[in-house]
């Protein structure tokens, strides 16, 4: 112990968690919080790249976003938002419980936070599964099942024509190779010459919808990975709380996991309206 540190009769022996290069637990805690905020800033910048991609795509192709967002469930998104907000509240309460040395409340609040995180991922799983089955995926995996595929492959199938070979590549702007299979006739490869039957979707179709789902999966996927990491951290914190490691004298891990968890919530607060609430 440094001789420059004044003896304080009310303080007693140094706290066991106080590292020697800090003067006091308060200073040590503030330093850790600052370090955590610096890390959180890099997290915001990481997501910033994807938000920028969103902004560019939406600025250039607003019609894609207006068309494709209807395939996201507003209600599931809203429920997930509420779940994350409640989990943020239980997390903040866990920090408060630790500060009050209320060990049982701390464990309950951490467990509730984990339950909310699992609930969030469960709903996300339902959403992803639905999109997977509907073929609403990114890039070349975008093969919508719910309507006529571009160039009306579905339409041709309904009219008893030979079903098209499974597309080896997605319908893109310039890539039409899968439409023109050998032996096919007609301008589109799948339609007989002179067949002017209206397509299943007669209104002007929106193209390159896979852009939206690429942005959707990149943003929500990276967010889900963060939720998963947060759950692992919360599990570790709960385990340590069960061992009785935390009290008013030392609760830094609870507070830091809390800050991380709140940033995960913060990002979802922006993702929800940007992806689900396009109007």
């Amino acid at each position: 112990m440094s001789t420059s540190r004044p003896a304080d009769s009310s303080a007693g022996a140094p706290a066991p968690h106080l590292q020697h290069h800090f003067t006091s637990p308060a200073q040590q805690f503030e330093s850790v919080v600052l370090g955590m905020w610096l890390f959180l800033a890099t997290e915001i910048l990481l997501f910033g790249g994807l938000f920028c991609a969103y902004a560019v795509y939406r600025a250039n192709h607003p019609e894609i976003f207006e068309y494709a967002h209807v395939y996201l469930s507003k209600s599931l998104g809203a429920v997930n938002t509420a779940i994350l907000l409640v989990s943020s509240f239980t997390m903040a309460s866990a920090v408060w419980a630790a500060q009050q040395s209320r060990a049982r409340l701390l464990r309950i609040m951490l467990a509730l936070t984990i339950a909310c995180g699992l609930g969030f991922l469960g709903i996300k799983y339902v959403e992803y599964k639905h999109k997977w089955h509907e073929g609403l995926l990114w890039g070349k995996l975008y093969r919508p099942q719910h309507e006529a595929a571009p160039f009306s492959a579905h339409h041709a199938f309904e009219h008893g024509q030979t079903p098209p070979a499974a597309p080896t590549s997605a319908p893109g702007d310039t890539d039409v190779s899968w439409v023109f299979t050998p032996g096919d006739t007609g301008p589109r490869g799948l339609l007989a010459p002179g067949d002017t039957t209206p397509l299943v979707s007669p209104e002007p179709k929106v193209h390159n919808v896979q852009l939206f789902f690429g942005v959707y999966f990149a943003l929500t996927g990276l967010h889900a990975v963060h939720v998963l990491a947060g759950l692992v951290l919360l599990g570790w914190t709960l385990w340590r709380a069960a061992l009785g490691h935390f009290s008013a004298a030392y609760f830094t891990p609870v507070a830091m996991v809390g800050l991380y968890w709140h940033v995960v919530d913060l990002i979802w607060i922006y993702l929800f309206p940007l992806l689900y609430l396009i109007h």
Binding site: A11, A26, A248
Partner: peptide, 11 residues
């Protein structure tokens, strides 16, 4: 103080 007290809480 080197320990958190009511006057100097941590956080």
């Amino acid at each position: 103080p080197t320990r958190p007290t009511a006057a100097h809480p941590v956080g």
